[in-house]
Computed example of a mutant assay.
Amino acid sequence: MDIRYATSPTEIPSLGTDALRGRFLVEDLFQPGEVSVTYSHHDRVVLVGAMPTDRPIGLVAPAELRAEHFLSRREIGIVNVGASGTVTVDGAAYELGHGACLYVGRGAEHVTFASSDTATPARFYGFSAPAHTTYPTTLVRAGEGNVRELGEQRTSNRRTLNQYIHADGVRSCQVVMGVTTLHEGSMWNTMPAHTHDRRMEAYLYFNLPEDARVLHLMGEPTESRHLVVANEQAVISPSWSVHSGVGTSAYSFVWAMAGENQSFDDMDHVQVTELR
């Protein structure tokens, strides 16, 4: 398990490119036939990447969790960013097409991932947080969440936001999760930027062409930095950091949050003119 320790905003000015990427960018989530696990001390979330090929693969608790099962004390939201596949939870199979989301609650013992076609594997992205109670496993297909249209073409940030796990949708203890897709010709996400001091957030960028990149803005509003992000790479965003980006083409991203509350609109906006 890859462990990322919590970072103070006062450390950011001293970090070079490699150090910044090492703290906040998860580059190798999807490895053929494997489950990759990255633990962040920011709200103790775990990012999971599963890419099943010729056989199903299981979600096993790393030794560092000191748990019998991965979800003994946790919950997880899973989005499939690859081809069609199946997630089986304690014997119940759920088929996830591209962009579908599955919530699995605390206490599930056996979670396995499989691809429908080994030639075109599924790629399951999971975001897990500690949980204090159990909510039922729930599948939401792509486009069936709470859909919000945001932004404008004139500001290059027209996008469709699909909320899956949230206070008025699929219930969870603290995970809030969804998918945003930029419209063709738009490149900016979440601008004007914001922070939310009560929750950390992680972005997984996908549907990005191989030769395209996203410049992801992070850091305090008055001490911003950027990460150059490729397809199917994730960014860990602490609660004190802005999280916004601009791509060289349109793209999608999974956003997921955990922390003190589940209010999607509880954010502290930062005007463009205030960024440095």
Rank of each mutant, 00 (worst) to 15 (best):
I3T: 03
R4M: 13
P13G: 09
P13F: 15
S14M: 11
R21V: 02
R21A: 14
R23Y: 07
F24W: 04
Q31N: 09
Q31M: 09
G33C: 03
V35N: 12
V35E: 02
V37Q: 03
T38Y: 08
Y39V: 09
H41A: 14
H41I: 05
H42W: 04
V45L: 03
V46N: 07
V46F: 13
V46E: 10
V48E: 06
P56V: 12
G58T: 04
G58V: 02
G58C: 07
L59C: 00
A61W: 12
A61T: 05
E64G: 06
R66P: 00
L71D: 04
R74P: 10
R74Q: 12
E75Q: 15
G77T: 03
V79D: 01
V79M: 13
V87G: 09
V89I: 12
V89K: 01
V89C: 06
E95L: 14
C101Y: 01
L102N: 10
V104Q: 07
G105S: 05
A108T: 01
H110W: 06
A114R: 03
S116E: 13
S116R: 06
T118Q: 08
A119W: 00
F124T: 08
Y125T: 02
F127M: 04
A129P: 01
P130K: 01
P130F: 06
Y135N: 09
P136V: 13
T137R: 06
T138Y: 02
L139E: 04
V140P: 01
V140Q: 13
G143D: 03
E144Y: 03
E144N: 07
V147A: 13
V147W: 12
E149H: 07
E149Q: 04
L150R: 08
Q153I: 08
S156E: 06
R159C: 05
L161W: 00
N162T: 10
Y164W: 02
I165E: 02
H166I: 03
G169M: 13
G169Y: 15
S172E: 06
V176C: 14
V176G: 05
H183P: 09
H183E: 15
S186C: 12
S186Y: 08
H194C: 02
H194R: 12
T195N: 03
M200W: 04
M200P: 02
E201N: 07
Y203D: 05
Y203I: 05
L204G: 01
Y205G: 06
Y205D: 07
N207K: 09
L208M: 03
L208C: 14
P209C: 08
E210D: 05
A212T: 08
V214P: 00
L215M: 12
L217V: 12
P221H: 14
T222I: 09
E223Y: 07
S224H: 11
R225Q: 13
V228K: 05
V229C: 14
N231Q: 00
P238T: 08
W240E: 01
G247F: 15
T248M: 03
T248V: 10
V254T: 00
W255G: 10
A256D: 07
A256E: 01
A256M: 11
G259A: 00
E260W: 04
Q262L: 08
S263W: 05
F264L: 14
F264I: 11
D266H: 12
M267K: 08
M267T: 09
D268V: 07
V272H: 00
E274P: 00
R276N: 09
